[in-house]
Design a protein around this nucleic acid. Sequence first.
DNA 1: GTGCGTACTCTCTTTTGGGAAGCATTCCCG
DNA 2: CGGGAATGCTTCCCAAAAGAGAGTACGCAC
Lengths: 126, 126
Amino acid sequence: MKVSTPVMVPAFPFADGIFPAGCPSRTVLDHVTSKWGVLLLVALSEGPQRWSELRRRAQGISEKMLAQTLKTLEADGFVRRDAQPVIPPRVDYSLTGRGEELAALLLPLVAWVAEHAEAIVNRPQS
Amino acid sequence: MKVSTPVMVPAFPFADGIFPAGCPSRTVLDHVTSKWGVLLLVALSEGPQRWSELRRRAQGISEKMLAQTLKTLEADGFVRRDAQPVIPPRVDYSLTGRGEELAALLLPLVAWVAEHAEAIVNRPQS
DNA sequence: GTGCGTACTCTCTTTTGGGAAGCATTCCCG
DNA sequence: CGGGAATGCTTCCCAAAAGAGAGTACGCAC
């Protein structure tokens, strides 16, 4: 497998300047590529999970950032929040269709990074 | 098209917890998914460019962040810095092999975001 | 009625990032 | 012959944002 597919994306017309500065693309890109956004989307790509579970999977995230990031992802329509009014509260988070599309693009990236990370940190010069 | 391909990436063994908190993957992931890191990598995927050119393409970036981000990407071995000792100075930046691999994974993601950004910002509910 | 577990929310500290000026060097213009 | 422009950074200062940690509401078990 590997990089056997240098399909070379059409490199669409980025004109001059990747994106206009105030463009929606910038906003959304910031959300999905945020430190915790990526991690949560990848975590959720393995199936619905509840708050405390996500907290465990995304090691090191604070409760504040978890809540905040989930809220952003939900507002963007990537994540579905399903709160059951039971006590103690139970809230399940899952990817929407849109979220799954995105995760499918994110996963290869994360996989590549995971595979090369050590080499990159140790011997920057490739 | 759409979600016609729930190919579901193999979802490799993320065990429990996407990455250990202090893991190199985290570090590298943060670098490449940083706000300006993505933009610069994508910009450079269209060919070598010099400082002032990058500054223009990545609309809105400050000189400080451009210098800092390029330094990080160079340290990680994604970007090559080629300074010619002429006056006025001329410095060309380009992707290394590793940088191109990464950009190839980044482009589809950026393209998807560009395509859906407006809908996401306007009508979060999909 | 005390204490626990869950899902947040609030407050305060640390880090990040933008803006602008500075710098080195040579050529161009007046 | 002197002043200003062009280029690629670097440094300083301060506002904005990220992040940690404690606090809150809620019912149930004991």
